[in-house]
Design a protein around this nucleic acid. Structure first.
Length: 255
DNA sequence: ATGTCGCCTCATAGGCGA
């Protein structure tokens, strides 16, 4: 099963991109983040052969799952705070695989309420992912984690030193997810390889100079990791006209 | 501090979030 994840930075602005990309790569499942719209064009994707589920809000955030096979929505809220109004979480099952789509908070600037919320949200994600492990169901958690895991995951650590995505607190929490037993699919298959990013700023010709960061990830439970076949970043999508600032990441899971 | 997008509005400019 080919599963992809893409932060599109507005589904309205990127509808053509997503449509074309689906045709070119034909994934079984596509996780979308940062829809930035109340309405999700599910009918359009239905015509392309994809069932979908979406959690949306006006202007901000928003996540959706597209699937060629039938999908069942399990949860739209992350454990630990039922009152959280941000559209950042969507858990589904496709066949016998659990697939969770997340859009973690950015958290900038450091020390702000948004930074506090980022850390609290990651603590909740930890609890959620711990619960999932106990079920033994193969689980794939994909999306925009808004964390630069290690120094090799950015072009130059010094330029991200004052950014929330590079702070010790979120990085420690990301590592805690791995310590639970989850595997960072891309890093597992490409150990020690720097220069592979999923996000590049719009300004300062960041993409042309490959000044990016790796913040979109697939974390796999042990049962899913044994079935991991491939994980790649589609850098070409970032080179399209009027692109999202993120590139899609793809993971191939056996059967 | 800055750059660039996309969203929204006491809207055609400015603020916010990323």
């Amino acid at each position: 099963m080919l599963i992809a994840s893409w932060n599109v930075n507005s589904i309205r602005a990127r509808l053509e991109h997503v449509t074309r990309w689906l045709g070119a790569h034909n994934p079984d499942v596509l996780l979308l983040q940062e829809l930035k719209a109340e309405e999700f064009p599910s009918a359009l994707f239905e015509k392309l052969g994809y069932a979908s589920a979406a959690v949306t809000q006006k202007s901000y955030n928003g996540v959706a799952v597209l699937s060629r096979r039938p999908l069942a929505v399990i949860s739209t809220t992350l454990v630990g705070d039922e009152a959280d109004s941000h559209a950042r979480f969507l858990e589904v099952t496709v066949d016998h695989l659990r697939i969770a789509n997340i859009y973690a908070p950015n958290g900038n600037p450091i020390g702000s309420d948004k930074f506090i919320y980022k850390l609290a949200w990651m603590d909740r994600l930890y609890e959620q992912m711990k619960i999932w492990l106990q079920s033994g169901i193969p689980t794939v958690v994909g999306g925009d984690f808004n964390v630069i895991p290690e120094d090799i995951d950015c072009h130059k650590p010094a330029s991200w030193m004052h950014d929330a995505l590079f702070q010790p607190e979120p990085r420690i929490r990301y590592r805690a997810l791995l310590a639970l037993g989850y595997t960072d699919a891309f890093r597992f298959l490409h150990p020690g390889q720097g220069g592979h990013f999923t996000y590049w700023d719009y300004f300062r010709n960041s993409f042309e100079r490959n000044r990016g960061i790796r913040i979109d990830h697939f974390l796999l439970s042990p049962e899913a990791t044994t079935r991991l076949e491939d994980c790649e970043i589609d850098k070409a999508a970032r080179a399209m006209e009027k692109p999202s600032d993120h590139a899609p990441i793809l993971v191939q899971i056996e059967a």
